[in-house]
Amino acid sequence: MKTTKQARRDAKQLFHTCKVSGLLDETRVRNVVGAVIAQKPRGYVGILTHFQRLVKLDLDRRAARVESAVPVSEALQQSVKANLGLRYGPGLAVTFAVNPALIGGLRVKVGSDVFDGSVKARLSELEASF
């Protein structure tokens, strides 16, 4: 289904009302979805589809994924979280994962920024330089 311009504009406006001091508020998002479904304004499916996309992009932007070759200690997790918080501000959803393919080091992805300090990345960089 094609989302109309008006639906996109409405979805964007709703999305902005869900923000509390720059951060997306989950309860407000739920309330908005519930209210839209209850009132069924014109083109509400399109509005909700686009609204979902905006929320997804916002969540993606605030999602931080930290990959390591071996499980990371609690202390290190706390320090990574603190450092990322300093750099990107509050509201980050940090997840930790184990990826043995990295061989060693950390790979941090926040939104579309990637900080790759893994051994694997360095090896492939070396390979490319030959």
Partner: peptide
Amino acid sequence: TSVNKQNVGIVRECADGVAKIEGLTD
């Protein structure tokens, strides 16, 4: 050992020699 910051995106659709990419904020 310095770690370089990279900006990445994900190809969402690709057709007729044109790609739409999500992310790539920089």
